[in-house]
Design a protein around this nucleic acid. Sequence first.
DNA 1: CTTGGGTCCTGTGCGC
DNA 2: TGCGCACAGGACCCAA
Length: 288
Amino acid sequence: MPELPEVETVRRGLEPVLRGARLVRVDQRRPDLRFPLPDRFAERLTGARVEAVGRRAKYLLAALDTGETWVTHLGMTGRFLVQRPETDADAPGRFTHPAPSEDKHTHLVLETEAGVRVTFFDARRFGYMGLIPTAALPNHPWFAALGPEPLGPEFDAGRLLRAFAGRTQAVKTVLLDQSVVAGLGNIYVCEALHRARISPRRAAGKVSRPAAERLVEAVRTVLGEAVAAGGSTLRDYAQADGLSGLFQHAWAVYGREDEPCPRPGCAGVVKRYPQGGRSTFGCSRCQR
DNA sequence: CTTGGGTCCTGTGCGC
DNA sequence: TGCGCACAGGACCCAA
């Protein structure tokens, strides 16, 4: 999936066109994504004005003037496409995806009063959406157990150590638990652990305080740099404007099996191995 | 309680 | 060229 940097990048792409915009047309193409869409979903969106476009963990939040928030999780392959008619006419072929109306993976098409079209695609349909009373968001099951935002002030070594305490599970696996810290996924966990020189296989409960401090710093740096680069562009992911993020070129270990470890002075090689059914990338030389 | 494994769904890229 | 299989950013659910 899009992890935190990709979701934040999508948020930044949607905000200029959705904030303050009234939704005048909503075309819902199917009754469900990963889960059933809300009852009368299109009707409840139609006519609403978007007051703010936010993000919590990997969730996009569009607060509506109806008192509800339209919540989207992109899953693995969910994408938004923004089309401004005047821009598209000047830049044909800018979008790598087929025209929304022709694509079988187009599930939702919105149009704002200003004539901007926002299309949601999701080939694998692991994504999901909800319409939740804004006041009830913090108590909703999707949000109630989420851990701190990794780029926010609540994420620090003390809190991380408390979450790790007593856990024998590998630190890599624990970091993917959204209740420990919210927003990391497979790529950025591998990147952060490499930067912090911690083995993905180390038991979470055996991470020392200095290592936890390095880890907090590494998570912040990796995510911050990725956000600044517009996220990583993966096979099924593009920014809301159809352009590419650049961070995939900055990956130190992810997708770099058998390449030399990029850490200066380290003679190791990047290895790939499964953990919990997913691929981990790391250097066995400098990560302990 | 934690932990591991299967599950949802489709597309792509590889070896044969 | 076709076929089967492994694998892909997530996270829920259940059994042990």
